[in-house]
Design a protein around this nucleic acid. Structure first.
Lengths: 151, 151
DNA sequence: ATTGAAAGCTTTTTCTT
DNA sequence: AAGAAAAAGCTTTCAAT
């Protein structure tokens, strides 16, 4: 990926609503050239979308937990991610190496809600769970280092 | 939080670059009313920013890992998050309940890079690490359910 | 691949209810 | 809080290089 594209991606991860005008100034190209490059980055799947970042506390989802999941019966076909996808409380699902099969990131309003979601996870996917409660989040979702240069 | 504000947040988490014109239509208010509400949501810290979502594979960071961290010497003051903040490979840092103190989400280019980052984590923060490699990501960063209504 | 220019929208501000 | 309107600014497309 070219340097200009990296600069564009860096700009849009730092401010997803930055205008093409500002981006163009930042990367030193004309507005229309930047516009075309952004379209290409989107089409190539380098940029996959745009979102607002939110405060989960403000949205009344103050309790975050990691839920490690493994099949109750490891001989059964493993389709846990699809079986769990309907649970809106699961923000992310990672397939992992190690003793657990999946690691889920869950956001809920209360311990009672967490209990309910854990039950739903177990019954939906025939799995056992091991839950790690998040106490605080020093930082989260920092943008990646986009240039390839040395540290 | 009011229903209109929830609809606005839902719109902007689904598409962070949605125009105020489209948002206004979606929530059934005038453009300037929506604009004012978005500004308020930003000022109140409900919306904390906007970002582009990216493909980590395309950005040449195809290896994701969770790194559980605990102090080498638990009697020392614990300021691991600040000591680790300079490592750009750490996307997120969660303080967790349980035997580990922190859970880090790390993105790197290669196993060799992961090895280097783990060494940097251990020496920067005087901690031991236990690493879980992510094999694939069925889904990640799904928007939260924003309305408070029953399932 | 990049540019500049034109048309059409969007954002932002101000004023009014 | 919400709306309307106007000015400024931005996006998008197109023809040219």
């Amino acid at each position: 990926m070219e340097e200009v594209d990296r600069a564009i991606v860096a700009g849009l991860t730092a401010d997803g609503r930055m205008s093409y005008t500002d981006l163009a100034e930042k990367v030193g190209l004309s507005v229309s050239a930047v516009h075309q490059r952004v379209r290409r980055l989107e089409q190539r799947g380098v940029i996959t979308g745009y979102t607002a970042r939110v405060s989960y506390d403000a949205l009344e989802l103050p309790l975050t937990a990691f839920v490690a999941v493994r099949p109750f019966d490891p001989s059964q076909p493993d389709d846990a991610p699809e079986r769990l996808a309907h649970l809106a409380e699961i923000e992310s699902c990672y397939s992992v190496a190690g003793e657990d099969f999946y690691l889920l990131l869950v956001r809920v309003a209360s311990p009672a809600d967490l209990e309910r979601v854990l039950q739903e996870i177990r019954t939906s996917a025939n799995v056992t769970t091991r839950t790690t409660v998040v106490l605080s989040t020093p930082y989260e979702g920092r943008p990646p280092r986009i240039s390839r240069d040395p540290d």
